[in-house]
Amino acid sequence: MPSVKHAAPIPGAHSYILRADPRPRRTLIVAIVAVLVLTLLGFLLRSHAIDQSLSQAFNDAHVGALGVFTSAVYVAIGPGPAIVGTALIAVVIGFAGGNWRRAVAFAGVVALTWVPSDLVKILVDRPRPDAQLLAHPTLPAPVDASYPSGHTVFMVAFVIAALYLLAGTRWFRTGVVVGSVLVAVVVLSVVIDGLHYPTDALASVAWAVLVAPAARLVWVDWLLARFWPGRR
Protein backbone atom coordinates (compact mmCIF):
# COMPACT_ATOMS: atom_id res chain seq x y z
CA MET A 1 0.00 0.00 0.00
CA PRO A 2 1.58 3.32 -1.02
CA SER A 3 2.37 5.73 1.78
CA VAL A 4 0.29 8.86 2.03
CA LYS A 5 2.22 12.10 1.97
CA HIS A 6 0.71 14.84 4.03
CA ALA A 7 0.89 18.33 2.65
CA ALA A 8 2.99 20.78 4.58
CA PRO A 9 0.91 23.14 6.71
CA ILE A 10 0.26 26.48 5.11
CA PRO A 11 0.76 29.75 6.98
CA GLY A 12 -2.11 30.33 9.39
CA ALA A 13 -3.49 26.83 8.95
CA HIS A 14 -3.72 26.30 12.71
CA SER A 15 -5.23 29.75 13.32
CA TYR A 16 -3.33 30.40 16.53
CA ILE A 17 -4.45 34.00 16.26
CA LEU A 18 -8.02 32.78 16.82
CA ARG A 19 -7.28 30.50 19.77
CA ALA A 20 -8.62 31.66 23.12
CA ASP A 21 -6.06 32.86 25.65
CA PRO A 22 -5.85 30.27 28.46
CA ARG A 23 -4.76 32.95 30.97
CA PRO A 24 -6.66 36.13 30.06
CA ARG A 25 -6.35 37.73 33.50
CA ARG A 26 -2.56 37.49 33.48
CA THR A 27 -2.42 38.83 29.92
CA LEU A 28 -4.49 41.87 30.89
CA ILE A 29 -2.52 42.54 34.05
CA VAL A 30 0.78 42.41 32.17
CA ALA A 31 -0.52 44.85 29.56
CA ILE A 32 -1.96 47.28 32.11
CA VAL A 33 1.23 47.31 34.17
CA ALA A 34 3.30 47.75 31.00
CA VAL A 35 1.23 50.73 29.87
CA LEU A 36 1.50 52.39 33.28
CA VAL A 37 5.24 51.77 33.64
CA LEU A 38 6.06 52.84 30.08
CA THR A 39 3.94 55.98 30.43
CA LEU A 40 5.72 56.89 33.67
CA LEU A 41 9.05 56.19 31.98
CA GLY A 42 8.04 58.57 29.20
CA PHE A 43 7.46 61.40 31.65
CA LEU A 44 10.85 60.74 33.25
CA LEU A 45 12.58 60.76 29.87
CA ARG A 46 10.81 63.98 28.91
CA SER A 47 12.40 65.67 31.93
CA HIS A 48 15.80 64.01 31.53
CA ALA A 49 17.02 63.36 27.97
CA ILE A 50 19.60 60.84 29.16
CA ASP A 51 20.25 59.58 25.65
CA GLN A 52 20.70 62.90 23.86
CA SER A 53 24.38 62.23 23.16
CA LEU A 54 23.59 58.71 21.96
CA SER A 55 20.95 60.12 19.63
CA GLN A 56 23.53 62.50 18.19
CA ALA A 57 26.01 59.66 17.72
CA PHE A 58 23.50 57.59 15.76
CA ASN A 59 22.56 60.58 13.63
CA ASP A 60 26.20 61.00 12.63
CA ALA A 61 25.73 57.81 10.57
CA HIS A 62 22.98 59.44 8.47
CA VAL A 63 25.18 59.88 5.41
CA GLY A 64 25.36 58.46 1.90
CA ALA A 65 23.39 55.35 1.01
CA LEU A 66 22.61 54.56 4.63
CA GLY A 67 21.00 57.94 5.14
CA VAL A 68 18.91 57.54 2.00
CA PHE A 69 17.84 54.06 3.09
CA THR A 70 16.80 54.99 6.63
CA SER A 71 14.85 58.01 5.38
CA ALA A 72 13.07 55.80 2.85
CA VAL A 73 12.17 53.30 5.58
CA TYR A 74 10.65 56.06 7.68
CA VAL A 75 8.48 57.27 4.80
CA ALA A 76 7.53 53.75 3.68
CA ILE A 77 5.91 52.85 6.99
CA GLY A 78 4.36 56.19 7.80
CA PRO A 79 0.76 56.13 9.10
CA GLY A 80 -0.84 56.20 5.63
CA PRO A 81 1.28 53.44 4.05
CA ALA A 82 1.05 51.40 7.26
CA ILE A 83 -2.75 51.45 7.27
CA VAL A 84 -3.02 50.68 3.56
CA GLY A 85 -0.37 47.96 3.77
CA THR A 86 -2.04 46.26 6.73
CA ALA A 87 -5.40 46.33 4.98
CA LEU A 88 -3.93 44.84 1.80
CA ILE A 89 -2.15 42.08 3.71
CA ALA A 90 -5.38 41.30 5.53
CA VAL A 91 -7.19 40.97 2.19
CA VAL A 92 -4.49 38.61 0.94
CA ILE A 93 -4.80 36.53 4.12
CA GLY A 94 -8.56 36.36 3.68
CA PHE A 95 -8.41 35.25 0.07
CA ALA A 96 -5.45 32.89 0.48
CA GLY A 97 -6.75 31.06 3.53
CA GLY A 98 -10.46 31.34 2.92
CA ASN A 99 -10.97 32.51 6.49
CA TRP A 100 -11.87 36.18 6.77
CA ARG A 101 -12.10 36.05 10.56
CA ARG A 102 -8.39 35.30 10.57
CA ALA A 103 -7.75 38.25 8.27
CA VAL A 104 -9.81 40.61 10.43
CA ALA A 105 -8.10 39.25 13.54
CA PHE A 106 -4.70 40.05 12.03
CA ALA A 107 -5.63 43.64 11.16
CA GLY A 108 -7.31 44.18 14.52
CA VAL A 109 -4.32 42.99 16.55
CA VAL A 110 -2.07 45.38 14.67
CA ALA A 111 -4.45 48.32 15.08
CA LEU A 112 -5.33 47.72 18.73
CA THR A 113 -1.66 47.45 19.66
CA TRP A 114 -0.61 50.47 17.61
CA VAL A 115 -3.33 53.10 18.03
CA PRO A 116 -3.29 53.37 21.87
CA SER A 117 0.42 54.19 21.75
CA ASP A 118 -0.51 57.47 20.05
CA LEU A 119 -2.60 58.38 23.09
CA VAL A 120 0.47 57.93 25.28
CA LYS A 121 2.47 60.00 22.80
CA ILE A 122 -0.01 62.86 23.22
CA LEU A 123 -0.10 62.48 27.00
CA VAL A 124 3.67 62.33 27.55
CA ASP A 125 4.47 64.93 24.87
CA ARG A 126 8.21 64.32 24.84
CA PRO A 127 9.96 66.66 22.36
CA ARG A 128 11.83 65.19 19.41
CA PRO A 129 15.64 65.23 19.53
CA ASP A 130 16.86 68.81 19.17
CA ALA A 131 17.57 69.31 15.45
CA GLN A 132 20.11 72.03 16.24
CA LEU A 133 22.26 69.45 18.01
CA LEU A 134 22.14 66.92 15.17
CA ALA A 135 24.66 66.71 12.36
CA HIS A 136 22.04 65.57 9.82
CA PRO A 137 18.57 66.59 11.00
CA THR A 138 15.52 65.49 9.05
CA LEU A 139 13.73 68.53 7.62
CA PRO A 140 10.96 69.38 7.92
CA ALA A 141 10.87 67.70 11.31
CA PRO A 142 7.62 66.02 12.43
CA VAL A 143 5.56 68.25 14.68
CA ASP A 144 4.15 65.51 16.90
CA ALA A 145 5.78 64.18 20.06
CA SER A 146 8.59 61.66 20.17
CA TYR A 147 7.64 59.01 22.75
CA PRO A 148 6.84 56.31 21.87
CA SER A 149 7.77 55.78 18.22
CA GLY A 150 4.62 54.99 16.26
CA HIS A 151 6.67 53.56 13.40
CA THR A 152 8.35 51.10 15.74
CA VAL A 153 5.16 50.12 17.55
CA PHE A 154 3.50 49.46 14.21
CA MET A 155 6.30 47.27 12.88
CA VAL A 156 6.57 45.17 16.04
CA ALA A 157 2.78 44.80 16.21
CA PHE A 158 2.72 43.78 12.54
CA VAL A 159 5.40 41.15 13.11
CA ILE A 160 3.68 39.76 16.21
CA ALA A 161 0.33 39.49 14.41
CA ALA A 162 2.08 37.71 11.53
CA LEU A 163 3.75 35.30 13.96
CA TYR A 164 0.35 34.46 15.45
CA LEU A 165 -0.63 33.38 11.95
CA LEU A 166 2.57 31.44 11.35
CA ALA A 167 2.65 29.68 14.73
CA GLY A 168 2.46 25.92 14.32
CA THR A 169 3.70 25.95 10.73
CA ARG A 170 7.09 25.36 9.18
CA TRP A 171 7.28 29.08 8.39
CA PHE A 172 7.31 30.22 12.01
CA ARG A 173 11.09 30.24 12.52
CA THR A 174 11.58 32.04 9.22
CA GLY A 175 8.99 34.57 10.34
CA VAL A 176 10.85 35.15 13.60
CA VAL A 177 14.13 35.79 11.77
CA VAL A 178 12.63 38.03 9.09
CA GLY A 179 10.48 39.86 11.62
CA SER A 180 13.44 40.48 13.92
CA VAL A 181 15.41 41.95 11.02
CA LEU A 182 12.52 44.22 10.05
CA VAL A 183 12.14 45.48 13.60
CA ALA A 184 15.88 46.11 13.90
CA VAL A 185 15.86 48.03 10.61
CA VAL A 186 13.00 50.27 11.76
CA VAL A 187 14.53 50.88 15.20
CA LEU A 188 17.86 51.89 13.67
CA SER A 189 16.18 53.96 10.97
CA VAL A 190 14.12 56.17 13.29
CA VAL A 191 17.15 56.73 15.52
CA ILE A 192 19.67 57.34 12.72
CA ASP A 193 17.24 59.78 11.12
CA GLY A 194 17.34 61.74 14.38
CA LEU A 195 13.56 61.59 14.65
CA HIS A 196 13.49 59.53 17.85
CA TYR A 197 15.70 58.97 20.83
CA PRO A 198 16.98 55.40 21.28
CA THR A 199 14.83 55.14 24.41
CA ASP A 200 11.75 56.02 22.33
CA ALA A 201 12.41 53.09 20.03
CA LEU A 202 13.24 50.58 22.76
CA ALA A 203 10.18 51.55 24.79
CA SER A 204 8.09 51.09 21.64
CA VAL A 205 9.37 47.54 21.20
CA ALA A 206 8.50 46.78 24.82
CA TRP A 207 5.05 48.34 24.37
CA ALA A 208 4.16 46.20 21.37
CA VAL A 209 5.53 42.96 22.84
CA LEU A 210 3.66 43.41 26.13
CA VAL A 211 0.44 44.95 24.82
CA ALA A 212 -0.14 42.85 21.67
CA PRO A 213 -1.33 39.73 23.56
CA ALA A 214 -3.94 41.83 25.37
CA ALA A 215 -4.93 43.45 22.07
CA ARG A 216 -5.46 39.99 20.62
CA LEU A 217 -7.44 38.95 23.70
CA VAL A 218 -9.79 41.96 23.52
CA TRP A 219 -10.19 41.96 19.76
CA VAL A 220 -10.42 38.23 19.05
CA ASP A 221 -11.54 36.47 22.24
CA TRP A 222 -14.02 39.11 23.33
CA LEU A 223 -15.22 41.08 20.31
CA LEU A 224 -14.90 38.71 17.35
CA ALA A 225 -15.99 35.71 19.39
CA ARG A 226 -19.13 37.55 20.40
CA PHE A 227 -20.10 39.42 17.25
CA TRP A 228 -18.60 37.17 14.57
CA PRO A 229 -18.44 33.58 15.86
CA GLY A 230 -17.06 31.02 13.45
CA ARG A 231 -14.47 28.34 12.88
CA ARG A 232 -10.97 28.76 14.20
Rank of each mutant, 00 (worst) to 15 (best):
A82Q: 00
L38E: 08
K5H: 12
R231Q: 12
H6K: 13
L163I: 01
D144S: 10
A208R: 02
R216L: 08
S117A: 10
A167V: 14
Q52W: 10
R170K: 14
V187D: 01
Y16F: 15
A13E: 15
P229V: 02
P9Q: 11
A87C: 09
V159D: 00
L40V: 15
A208I: 12
W207T: 03
S117Q: 05
D130F: 14
I83P: 03
P213D: 09
Q56D: 11
P229G: 02
T169G: 07
P9M: 10
V181H: 08
P213C: 09
P213R: 05
W114D: 02
P22V: 15
G175N: 06
Q56V: 10
G85Q: 03
T86P: 02
D193M: 07
A57S: 12
V92F: 06
K5N: 13
G78P: 04
W207C: 03
P140V: 09
G67C: 09
A161G: 00
L188H: 04
K5D: 15
R126I: 08
A96G: 03
S204V: 04
V115A: 07
D21P: 01
G98E: 00
V186T: 12
H6R: 14
L223Q: 11
P142I: 14
G78D: 14
I50T: 12
A161T: 00
V211E: 00
I17H: 01
I29K: 00
M1L: 13
T199Y: 04
A49E: 13
F154P: 04
L210C: 05
F43H: 09
T169W: 09
V35S: 14
T152Y: 09
L54E: 13
D21E: 12
V205L: 02
V153P: 00
A131M: 07
I89M: 09
V178L: 15
L44P: 04
G179T: 12
M155R: 07
G175W: 05
R173P: 04
G179S: 13
L139Q: 11
A49C: 01
V92Y: 00
L123T: 04
L224W: 00
R101E: 10
S47L: 15
K121C: 07
L40R: 08
A145C: 15
F95R: 06
P198Q: 11
S189K: 04
A49D: 14
A7M: 08
A13C: 13
L119K: 05
G179A: 15
A57T: 12
G168V: 03
A145E: 14
L182G: 11
V218I: 11
W207H: 05
V181K: 11
R101W: 12
W100E: 04
A13T: 11
L40K: 12
K121L: 10
A135L: 15
R101Q: 11
V115C: 00
G230I: 01
L165G: 12
Y164L: 06
A65K: 08
A82E: 00
R128P: 05
Y164P: 06
V4E: 14
L134G: 13
P127M: 06
